[in-house]
Structures are given as structure tokens and as C-alpha cells.
Simulated scan of single mutants.
Amino acid sequence: MVPKNAAKRRRLPPTERREEILKKAINLFSEHGFESSTREIARQLGITQPLLYRYFPSKDDLVRAAYRSVYLDRWDVEWDRLLCERDQPLDWRLKTFYRSYTETIFTRDWMRIYLFSGLKGADINRWYIGLLEERILQRIIKEYRYLAGLDGEAKPQAEELELAWALHSGIFYLGVREHIFSLPPPQDRHRIIANVVDVFHQGIQAYFAKLSDREPAKLAAQVS
């Protein structure tokens, strides 16, 4: 059955039509998850199923396109450069990175799609976690290893990586609180991020100082 509003729909060039469908699908996924069939998705988007298939031959294609749009297309390559900028203090780099990163991910569609896909066990989470670990979390650990006089290019140990996850998860929860639990966001998110980074910065210096047989105070003086 053709949706009632299908005949009234304005004709768009194929590229614009595809983007319109994708944008509506992202909103649908963020509100209801990924359980709907393509027939139901088409109905909720106000289009016919054949039209949906014209642009996205399968549901997996639509989900992958949503992933690229919400996650990959919003990834800023400057983040990689920033974290490796060793002529700048590392705590400053982390604060600057997380201010920018949270501006990108603290949106309703990003947060809700991420959690819906996690509950479903979808590939979308595994893709993104792999990207996050490789490009951000491993780099954070490598930078602290370098500051401690250890091998800054060695692959981080699982225990070390968990420290980076603790930092990241604490900041990520600020977005969960706002967009999943509908609780008021912090009045000054940047200040909260700075405080979290400061606590992490001091603690991880002590951790790596033990590994390098150097006093935490000496390492702190080198960083500052």
C-alpha cells in the first residue's frame, strides 16, 4: 500500500532523495532502535518499500550508511594530530580533544544509536570501538608511556588500556545522563571535563612512574 503522502512528496534529485531518506532513518533508529523490518521502516519514513530499496538494497546497507553518516563522517582527523602534538602539554591536549569530541558525540542521534546497537549486539558498535581504541585510547596510553621514558610506540597492555577506558567512559557518561536518562546536563561541561582530565592526569602519571622507577613529582615537573 502506497503511503498517503507519497503522491504529494516533492521530486528531488537522487542524491538529495537518498540523503533525505538517510536522515529520516537515522532519526528513526535513534528513537526506536533497529528491530523494524524494511517494510515498517519505509512506512514510518512515508515512502514505498521499492523506493527504499532503490537507494538502500537491504536493511544492512541502510544501517551501514547510518553508521558512516553518524560516526565516520563526523570523525575529525584533527583529533589524531592533536593527541600526537608533543610540543604541547599532554593534559592540555586531552582537554582540548575531549571538548571537541563531546561537541560531536553529545547529540541525541549519536548517543541513542550507539546504545541501541550495543543492546542488539550490532556490528556498528564493534566497528566504532575498534576505531576508538586504535585512534584515541591507544594513542593516549602511548603518549603517557613516552612521557614516562618508556617505549611510546609499544602496543598498550590490556591493563594500561583499561585506564584510558576509565577516562573515556567517565566523560561519555555525561552524554548518557543527558540524552538517555534525560537528566539536566552540567552547567559547565568544559569545566567538568577539565576536572576529570586533571584527576586522570595525576593518577596515570603515578602509575607509569612506578613502571619507569621515576618519582611522580619528577614526571609532573617534566610535563608542566
Rank of each mutant, 00 (worst) to 15 (best):
L119I: 06
I180E: 08
A7Y: 12
D87H: 15
R93I: 09
E19A: 09
N5P: 03
I26L: 09
I47H: 00
A194R: 06
E16G: 03
R9P: 01
Y67N: 12
L174Q: 10
T96E: 14
A122E: 14
K59V: 06
I124S: 12
A217H: 08
I47S: 00
W110H: 15
R93Q: 07
Q49V: 11
F172G: 14
Y114L: 15
N125T: 10
R177D: 07
A25K: 02
H190C: 09
A122M: 14
V196S: 09
P156M: 10
Q202R: 10
R177C: 06
E143F: 05
T107L: 14
K59Q: 14
D91Y: 12
E16M: 06
E159R: 01
C84R: 09
K210N: 11
T107A: 13
Y98H: 05
K142G: 00
L132E: 09
R10Q: 10
L22S: 09
K218Y: 08
P14Y: 04
L90T: 07
R108E: 11
Y146N: 01
F97D: 06
T96S: 12
A206R: 08
T15D: 13
P57H: 07
E31L: 13
Q187K: 14
V197N: 01
A42N: 00
P185T: 02
V2G: 06
E78S: 12
A42L: 02
M111E: 12
V77F: 03
N5L: 11
E153V: 00
A66S: 15
A148R: 04
F106Q: 12
Q202H: 08
L82K: 03
Q222L: 14
P216N: 04
K23L: 13
T102L: 13
R43Q: 03
T96D: 13
L22D: 02
R191W: 03
F181L: 15
E16L: 14
H168L: 04
P216Q: 10
K210G: 08
A220Y: 01
F181M: 15
G149R: 00
I105K: 13
G149H: 00
C84F: 10
P3R: 05
K155H: 07
G203A: 12
G130K: 05
L183S: 08
A66W: 04
A25S: 06
H201K: 03
F106C: 15
I140V: 14
I140F: 04
S37M: 00
